[in-house]
């Protein structure tokens, strides 16, 4: 068995032992359910509480389409609380092993830095994708049930696009985990930087080419309008280059023993 497989297997067992493989999908499932349920029942809740001056429910307001509900799950649930939870789940991916000396210890064995980093990013990305899928399917189910059906091809394409943004998130957090020694700093810097990326997405089409968060917007755009948006190829290229750059930086950092 090669070292990548051994290390990945170890990561996986660790996720099982720490119940990460259980709680992360559950949290995402709850997040996914929240959006359609809230959008469906909120008008009724407000109405039944009633009597509040100044709040006016427009009875003629159109019930949102399923597409919009699913898109808002991505935008307002996964892109906010979801990112923060993924950051918290992944922040000590390398930092913990730097702190207890396991990283140095493992590297005294014939293990390449690439297979070490590869196993870390791959397993944590797979867990994130799995959790996201659970949450997304839950949201999709309730959306179809409470609102209107969404074409399955759009649903899958949007998911695939969102996974690109997710790969950037995981690599970014792993990189900070390689650089910094304090989990709090890693979490804070990751949250600020990633939410900032997400915030400036959509401001200007040229800016979006260089912004991996553009893929989150493209995912919603696929759901609502069916179009991926302009210059997605460039956006994809830039995102992959950025991820490659981050991976090489981590590799260099560990090879130079700056940890």
């Amino acid at each position: 068995m090669n070292t990548f497989a051994v290390l990945s297997k170890k990561e996986f067992s660790q996720m099982v032992k720490e119940y990460k493989i259980l709680w992360l999908p559950i949290v995402f499932m709850l997040l996914g359910l929240t959006q359609p349920i809230m959008m469906y029942y909120l008008p009724m809740i407000l109405k039944s509480l009633g009597g509040v001056e100044g709040i006016m429910i427009d009875p003629t307001m159109a019930k949102p389409e399923g597409q919009e509900v699913l898109a808002s799950t991505l935008n307002s649930q996964f892109d906010q609380l979801g990112i923060i939870i993924i950051i918290v789940a992944a922040m000590s991916v390398i930092q913990a092993e730097k702190a207890n000396g396991m990283l140095a210890f493992i590297l005294t064995r014939p293990v390449s830095i690439s297979s070490y980093l590869g196993s870390k990013i791959a397993t944590h990305y797979l867990l994130a994708v799995f959790s996201l899928a659970i949450g997304y399917i839950a949201s999709y189910g309730y959306t179809v049930f409470l609102f209107s059906p969404v074409p399955i091809s759009q649903v899958i394409l949007a998911f695939a696009l969102y996974c690109l943004w997710l790969l950037f998130i995981i690599t970014f957090v792993t990189m900070l985990s390689t650089f910094f020694n304090s989990p709090a700093v890693i979490a804070l810097v990751s949250i600020v930087m990633l939410l900032l990326c997400r915030l400036i997405a959509g401001l200007h089409p040229v800016l979006d080419i260089f912004n991996p968060a553009g893929f989150s917007l493209r995912a919603s755009s696929v759901l609502i309008t069916g179009s991926v948006g302009a210059w997605w190829e460039l956006n994809l290229l830039v995102t992959f280059l950025v991820i490659l750059g981050m991976t090489l930086t981590m590799h260099y950092w560990i090879a130079k023993k700056k940890f």
Binding site: V6, K10, S13, E18
Partner: peptide, 19 residues
């Protein structure tokens, strides 16, 4: 230092396969 969640046997298995 080792992974606290591994058994002694698994630890040796892990380090051994890495070698």
């Amino acid at each position: 230092n080792f992974y606290s969640w591994m058994t002694a046997y698994d630890t040796l298995l892990f380090m051994g396969t890495l070698s």
